[in-house]
Design a binder for these strands. Structure first.
Lengths: 198, 198
DNA sequence: CCTACCGATCGGTAGG
DNA sequence: CCTACCGATCGGTAGG
């Protein structure tokens, strides 16, 4: 996914945007504040991105690219372990970056007001769903999982993950991710894994 | 919960804020835009609320008060039905108001940047959690549910609900709520209901 | 990339 | 509640 080429100055603008977003939130994110983090003028930013909206669309792509790093499924693994490690990376024990989750939540809330944002989230979601569904499907063929609808089950797990992140950020609940991980595990055990046979 | 007394003009300001928020989103929500919806001057708003922040805190309370209406548990019902109807109101077939969910998501994303916001969400969450946990606890005593940790199970169900709403709004997925309702049902069946005994 | 600047709009207030 | 206005800041541009 993604990995669009970014020039050195553009990369710096993305980092500055990230810092400004974490500190001020989307509603108070201004080109001036990004420029301050960048330690350059606002004109320097408009030189690379014509409008603020264009900058933010590029920034969302940058944010989502960053997620690619830590969502890996080892095709060598058995389906159950592959699904488990996918869930571990979706709901990590230790969130990678404090501000990242806040920034992501801020951007997600803009989706209803910005079609370009929403399209990127939808695309990303479809990609993650495919990874989960593939692991589940393999597990069904193998006999590890029951004959459920793979994409439906994958969507259930993504719903649990999204809910966990939402609660982690909104309620400032440090345990929300670990708990959601537990809920996901329960769901796998209760609705996916084959009932004790033999 | 809530039901703080609001004067007639204050009620009108809340409605105008709601309309402006739905139309423009939180980031582009200005006192002027609220005043336009109100068909009065911005000074009329500042007469009732000293600052924009004060107005928005009051507005969030207004929003959450509105939720009270449709989250009712009939104490007469048996635990399983009470839990089921709670989940139905948390994840309704037909969302009550188009803009309501968008407005709520917008406000939720502000929680990390506004402590007063977050406190209200935390309080609301605790209240909902209590209702769910009570139904589960009664079900355990009755023998309908297994001997799980009631609040833990309730939190799992809330996570599923939050995830469903998040996906409904962010991905503009009309089926997200119904699907989340199904996931919640699966969770109840797989992790709560007593395994076939007798 | 910078300086300097544009018109528009921001949240908020004074005076009535 | 309104009119009129405040200083500050907004996104963006011209000229170099």
């Amino acid at each position: 996914m993604g990995d669009s080429e970014r020039s050195e100055p553009e990369e710096e603008i993305m980092e500055a945007t990230y810092e400004a977003l974490c500190e001020h939130g989307y509603a108070d994110l201004t080109v001036q504040r990004i420029a301050t983090k960048l330690e350059k003028s606002t004109a320097a930013i408009h030189y690379h991105y014509d409008t603020k909206d264009e900058l933010l669309v590029a920034f969302l792509e940058y944010l989502l690219d960053g997620m690619d790093e830590w969502l890996k499924a080892d095709d060598e693994d058995a389906p159950r372990e592959r699904l488990s490690s996918l869930l571990d990376s979706l709901l990590p024990e230790e969130p990678h970056d404090e501000g990242f989750t806040v920034a992501m939540t801020d951007m997600r809330a803009q989706a209803p007001h910005n079609e370009a944002f929403r399209e990127q989230f939808v695309e990303r979601d479809a990609y993650t769903l495919d990874l989960l569904a593939a692991a589940i499907e393999d597990g069904i063929e193998e006999g590890t999982f029951r004959e459920v609808e793979p994409r439906g089950a994958a969507r259930s797990l993504l719903t649990i993950a999204d809910g966990g992140w939402s609660r982690y950020v909104v309620l400032d609940d440090d345990d929300a991710l670990v708990r959601a991980r537990g809920t996901a595990r329960e769901y796998v055990e209760g609705s996916l894994e084959a009932t004790t046979e033999g």
